[in-house]
Computed example of a mutant assay.
Amino acid sequence: MKKRSYTCGLDAAVDVVGGKWKALILWALHSGPRRFGELRKDVPGISEKVLILQLREMEHCGLVHREVYREVPPKVEYSMTDFGQSLNEALIPLGEWGEKHRETIEAIPAA
């Protein structure tokens, strides 16, 4: 397996949280464990397929823990790991910046 190499900390962080959905999924998990259906509601616009793929990637990276309960019907919950929580805390200032500048950003014409 090839070891990853980054030019700086931001490069490494963006690799872990890259894409449109991962930060939103982490934010949805900030208040506690969620079932798959709850996450679909908490992250508007995400398809079931993409949510499954993103959760798998986040679990593989150690950001999210998947707990399977042996029940009928099966119950699965997703929660943040300590690693995921630390990333979520780092994203809070970025979210605050987005809120502060939301009107300016929304006024930018689509490319």
Rank of each mutant, 00 (worst) to 15 (best):
E99G: 08
S79T: 04
Y6V: 04
E106D: 12
E38T: 02
I108W: 06
K49V: 10
A110R: 12
K2H: 13
E71H: 04
M1L: 12
P73I: 02
K20G: 09
K75C: 10
R4W: 08
G45T: 11
K2N: 13
D11W: 08
I92T: 11
K49Y: 09
P33E: 11
E89V: 07
S5N: 10
K20L: 15
T104W: 06
M58K: 04
L24F: 03
R70I: 09
P44E: 11
G18V: 05
I52R: 15
R56F: 12
Q54V: 07
V68D: 10
W27P: 00
T7R: 14
A107E: 02
S5Q: 07
A107S: 15
R56K: 14
G84R: 01
A90P: 00
H60A: 13
W21N: 07
V64G: 02
K41N: 09
R56Y: 13
G18E: 13
G98W: 12
E103Q: 12
K49D: 12
S79V: 01
G62S: 06
G37K: 05
P73D: 07
R35I: 11
K49W: 07
E71Y: 05
G98A: 15
I46M: 06
R70K: 09
C8T: 12
K49H: 10
K20I: 14
E38H: 06
R4G: 07
G84H: 01
E103K: 04
R4F: 11
G9L: 13
L53R: 15
T7P: 00
L10N: 03
E96W: 12
I92A: 10
G37P: 01
H65S: 13
R66G: 06
V72F: 14
E71S: 14
G62V: 05
M58E: 02
Y78S: 04
H101R: 03
T104S: 10
A13H: 02
A90T: 07
L26K: 01
I92P: 00
L24W: 05
A13P: 00
A28F: 07
V72Q: 13
Q54L: 04
P109W: 04
R70V: 05
S86H: 11
A107W: 03
S47C: 03
H30A: 11
T104L: 11
M80S: 05
A13Q: 04
W27K: 12
Q54W: 01
E96N: 13
E103C: 01
E57K: 14
E99I: 10
G18F: 08
G19C: 11
K49M: 09
E71T: 14
P93R: 04
G84E: 04
R66H: 12
D82K: 06
E59W: 00
L87N: 02
K41C: 06
G84Y: 01
G62I: 05
S86P: 00
V43H: 02
D15A: 14
V43W: 05
L63N: 03
K49F: 07
F83P: 00
